[in-house]
Design a protein around this nucleic acid. Structure first.
Lengths: 341, 341
DNA sequence: CTGTTAGCGCGTTCAT
DNA sequence: ATGAACGCGCTAACAG
């Protein structure tokens, strides 16, 4: 005894008018007599009418859904970006379908393909570290589906908008701050080398060191290989435990690296910032709570989400022109000084 | 010059067979001759055919999308649940459409209604603290849409599955642990009173105190009112600063309360756990990093997500029977002992 | 094994 | 101002 949904036809029959009129009435089309519109609205309400979004989408070719592909859920940065996307999207009557590529290129491709089946009007994607080739994205764009990329963009994809921060510049600034406050032996803790953002952050570190004529020591550099929280902890622990001579500052490439570093340092008996200064990257809330609070490069994550959504929705309203050069937006970061430096 | 998508008809025409056959062939329907199936697959591939999910959905009445409504994004618990949902859902060929009710009953209702438009096959929802009436949920269920509720369920909704933890029992256990380790003046830091989970956690605290004949002092109790990280900090700060006599333990109702409490204590010069012990609730990763690491009630968030998804997908396969009593699943929590107690 | 036909629910001409 | 009819792309029931 499942109730069949009320549809336009039901309303039409009840009122002895055509489906088309009902449709127009509900659409507030001015060409329908006010009195009938009234009637339609009332009976629709009374009968509990609810438009069928799927049918609408099939007919209109629009789903009002934005597909979002992030490398992983358990990184506050991506969630914050999603929150930004959601905020902007909802204001413009779009919903978001999120999926994680779980740091795997294959998953990224699969997700993209599943979105290609017409369930989303456009796609927002942040490439994984494994993503070396971009043909899967170009293929989607080739089919006329709007795409916006953000963070970790290894290769510019024509036809897609890009939103990012200047990772190298931000790192440069942070390292320079360490140098200016008298630090000389500055260690670097980064992520897997395959990830563009980590390459850039490393570059910023190197540039700042070089610009200030400070020798870069390999022994002070760690590129974490793991993608898992637990192992990050182990890697950092080992790195710090095996240093021949101790650094007086450590620049780290994520908030989590920074916190794990501080934790390990405190456990080893070092004082922060007296013995060692620490800087994190991201500023997603935790750095402020830790004792001592952590100096961070603040990345505008929420804003990035908003911007990304804005660009995508803008594309929806542009004439289809695949040769149109798309935008590259660079957002500003900020060095937030706290107790760890 | 936008390319039209290839559809079944195109393949059919090219092969001089009917649309139905093409459809069946791609469906691997055994009733189609292997040789034609081969041909169909090859030309489909060659022509770059991609099924239209919307059309499929309209025709089949299934979208393979699960709607998820959480009170907010910026709480790791909900994200972890979503991750669990995503994992289970994907294995069963479902995608998830997430939306946040932003701690507002109105938003919750709106989201629910938008899902009612047929874009999702079922709904997973965690009610906000504002949600006092459940008619909006019952209405959805009445229309035959499967619903599963999790966390913070103030009122049992017949026809919906429920997944939760025993908040009171978990709190009881945590407070009892404090008592057994010799703590006597035990403070309580909870969240807004309107939220069922906080009510239950408070109840567990009261029960444990009473069972051990320890007097409950109003001055040692804080129910945070704010829903915003910043203000939580302020509230806890003020609470701790104005205590007439200091507690020797503080039981807090979220990880974040626990961390903020520890931060404030350390800043005030107290030693943890020597002067004061602290316990958090959730165990979503941060407690392990803090120095000292935080003892927590571990809530199985990821598992909760998986369970919730499992129940929903199970409902999809059940015969429609609105009077069928639905399941209530209670997941186990665990007290994880660390350095803060 | 394959083709024909009739929906799925709504938007949208094209008439009237 | 309103109605009839077709299309969106695919599935499924019924024939043969």
């Amino acid at each position: 005894m499942k109730k069949r949904r009320v549809k336009l036809e039901d309303i039409a029959r009840k009122l002895n008018i055509s489906i088309a009129t009902v449709s127009r009435a509900l659409d507030k089309n001015p060409r329908v007599k006010p009195s009938t519109r009234e009637k339609v609205f009332k009976t629709a309400e009374a009968m509990g009418y609810m438009p069928n979004q799927i049918a609408k989408s099939l007919s209109s070719g629009k789903t009002n859904i934005i597909g979002v592909i992030i490398p992983r859920y358990d990184e506050p940065f991506f969630i914050e970006v999603c929150r930004g996307i959601d905020h902007y999207a909802r204001e413009h009557n779009y919903k978001i379908l999120i999926s994680s590529s779980r740091n795997s290129f294959e998953f990224e491709r699969e997700n993209l393909i599943s979105y290609e089946r017409g369930i989303v009007d456009g796609i927002i994607l942040s490439p994984t570290h494994e993503t070396e080739t971009f043909t899967h994205i170009r293929s989607i764009i080739g089919k006329g589906i709007p795409v916006v990329l953000f963070d970790n963009i290894k290769e510019e994809v024509s036809g897609a908008d890009h939103v990012l921060i200047e990772d190298d510049k931000a790192s440069y600034e942070a390292v320079e701050h360490l140098i200016k406050t008298g630090r000389k032996r500055i260690a670097f803790v980064g992520g897997i080398k395959e990830k563009k953002v980590f390459q850039d952050r490393f570059k910023g570190y190197l540039d700042a060191m070089q610009a200030n004529q400070i020798e870069v020591l390999d022994e002070l550099i760690l590129h974490c290989k793991s993608l898992d929280r637990e192992f990050e902890d182990t890697e950092i622990n080992e790195f710090l435990s095996n240093l021949p001579e101790f650094p007086d500052a450590i620049f780290t490439c994520t908030d989590n690296y920074g916190l794990l570093t501080m934790k390990t340092l405190l456990k080893m008996g070092y004082r922060i910032p007296d013995d060692v200064a620490v800087i994190g990257f991201g500023d997603l809330g935790l750095g402020e709570v830790f004792v001592p609070s952590m100096t961070c490069i603040a990345q505008p994550s929420f804003e990035m989400g908003q911007k990304v959504a804005e660009l995508l929705i803008q594309q929806f309203n542009e004439p289809v022109d695949k040769n149109h050069r798309k935008k590259v937006v660079k957002l500003k970061t900020e060095l937030v000084l706290r107790d760890s430096t």
